[in-house]
Structure formats: C-alpha cells, structure tokens
Nucleic acid binder design. Structure first.
Length: 298
DNA sequence: CAAGTGCCTTTATC
DNA sequence: AGATAAAGGCACT
C-alpha cells in the first residue's frame, strides 16, 4: 500500500519515529517496524511516497496525523529563530496519535530513565504480557491491555526492569480496569479537566500528564517540560522569567510543581494552541544538536 | 575497564 | 508552601 505525499503535506518519517515520542519503533535497513494497537506495521518513506504493509491507508494516515495542517501550525509556532531553525531542519516531524493506555504506561515508565532504557522496559512488558503477532517472518508483541497488566504480579513487573515504577503501574492498571476508565471520553474533555483526571493516577505528575495529553489525547496545546525543555527554556527564553527564577531553576535538575507550572504556562501562552508541536521541534533539535557535537568531538 | 554522571520525575517527608 | 531526599538500574563517558 502507498500514500502519496504532496508539498502541502510534508512528512519526515525518520524524525517522527525516532524523536522519542513513541518507544516501540525500530529501523532495519530502509524500513521501520512497529506495532500500533494490534497491527504490526512495516513502513518506509521514499521522498514523497509512503509505503507500508499490513494496514489500511486510513489507519496509517490517522496514526501519523497526516491531517494536522503543518503550514498552519508552523505559522503559529514560528515565533522566533529557535523554532524556525528546527522547522527548517526537519519540517515534517509530526505528533503521533498513540494509544492512550500504552502512552500512559510508557510515560509512567519513562520517569528518570533514558530512551534506550525506556524502550527496553516496554519491550519486556510486551514480550511477557502481550499477545503474539506476526508479520512476514517477524514476531511482534501487542502492547498488553489494562486487564493483562492488572493481573500481573508486582514482582513480574519488576522483572521487566521497572524498578520502583512497578508499583505505580500495578496500581494504575488496577484502577483503569476496576473503574472501566474511558480514555476516549478524556479526548473530549478540555485540556485542564483531562489533566486533572490523569494526575489522580499514581506515578503521574505534571510532566507525565502533559505527555499523555499531547501524544495520545489530541491536546496539541500541552507543553511537557522535561530536563531538555527546561534547559531550552532557560537558555533561549530567559527574559520571560525573573533573573532569580532562571538562576534557581537552571541550578537544579528538576523543577518544583510551581516552577513547572510557570514554564508550562509560558510555553502555552507564547506558542499558542499548538505549543506541543513547538515543544517537540525544540526538543528534537536540541538533542540532535548535542549528539552531533559529541560525534564531531571524537 | 571502573567509577561517575545523567536519565523526557514522582512521591514522601520534613 | 517549599525544600529535600529517596527511589531501579541502565547507558554513556
């Protein structure tokens, strides 16, 4: 199957799948392999052609958010040279529409971990608790649904490398099952309301909630502030804060709740209704930039 | 190769 | 309210 991308619908598949918003994609040769819901997917991009196996075009179109109007989004978030440079570099990075449950679990696990370790944990969970799924000669595992994880023993979750996060996942899975928690309903709630509900789950703080809102609930105004975004904000946008605030926040690793709220509100006010896109472009740009500095110094 | 640092933070406790 | 510490373990230098 193929989807033709014209100039009005840019896509950078590599940036989209490797920028750290989703953790279960792997690239082998030209092809990306992943599993979305219960659909194992093989996909590649050749210039303006998107080629894939095992899914309908509508499904791929939706997952990749090809209907997000990037022209309009760039016009709104392109407030300064920092974002504009990032847009120039990889225009076509898109926010995926992930499954909310998988996304919630992913970011509960992601706290205080690096991306390779997060991938490892999620793969362990899928291998241990997910259903087998085949595509060609390859075996994939679905991401385990709430029931599967709610049945899991705490020690088996720990074996997946979750550490102290295991008990948060254990408790969250139970609450989602018992309450029949409806993520689809959350998509219809406004940002603040949906955020409040997510914050009730153990292991979910302000940052994790913002990630789930942005990456799976369609709240493009969400502006997650992790260590990178904190550094970026203090480095490029210090004049939006008091000198004292910048000094205090720059010195420590993670912000307090009120400091988080200040940076989060800045992002949403300054970048507007698509602040989440600005966040992702800045995040990816800064990380690539640092990686290239490392490589060139070797 | 060992040891140190950092990691898309949250929670408990003072 | 606000600061501080503790919580796996893996990856990278």
């Amino acid at each position: 199957m193929k989807i033709h991308l014209d100039a009005s619908c840019p896509l950078d598949l590599d940036a989209t799948l490797c920028c750290g918003q989703a953790f279960r994609w792997n690239k082998k040769d030209e092809w990306w392999f992943g599993i979305v819901g219960d659909t194992a997917l093989k996909i590649r991009q050749l210039d303006d052609e998107l080629e894939f196996e095992n899914a309908e075009p509508e499904f791929v179109h939706g997952y990749l958010s090809l209907d997000d109007d990037l022209e309009r989004i760039f016009a709104q978030i392109g407030k300064d040279e920092h974002v504009k440079n990032a847009i120039r570099e990889f225009a076509g990075l898109r926010i995926l529409r992930q499954d909310p449950w998988e996304c919630l679990v992913s970011y509960i696990c992601a706290t205080y971990k690096n991306i390779p370790a997060i991938k490892q944990m999620l793969n362990n969970l899928a291998r241990k608790f997910g259903e087998k799924n085949f595509l060609g000669n390859e075996t994939f595992y679905d991401f385990p649904n709430p029931e599967k994880l709610a049945e899991a023993a705490l020690k088996d979750l720990k074996k997946c490398g979750l550490g102290y996060r295991a008990k948060y996942l254990y408790e969250t899975a139970r609450r989602v099952c018992e309450g029949g928690f409806d993520f689809e309903r959350l998509k219809k709630e406004p940002y603040e309301r949906a955020k409040e509900e997510l914050l009730c789950f153990p292991g979910v703080g302000l940052k994790v909630a913002d990630c789930v809102l942005l990456f799976s609930l369609g709240k493009l105004e969400a502006f997650p502030v992790d260590v990178w975004i904190k550094r970026i904000t203090m480095k490029y946008y210090p004049n939006h804060f008091s000198e004292d605030f910048v000094r205090r926040v720059s010195d420590k690793r993670s912000p307090s709740g009120s400091e988080y709220r200040k940076m989060n509100e800045f992002g949403r006010r300054y970048f507007g209704e698509y602040a989440g896109y600005a966040q992702e472009y800045l995040y990816h740009y800064e990380r690539l930039d640092q990686r290239s500095r490392c490589e060139s110094s070797q």
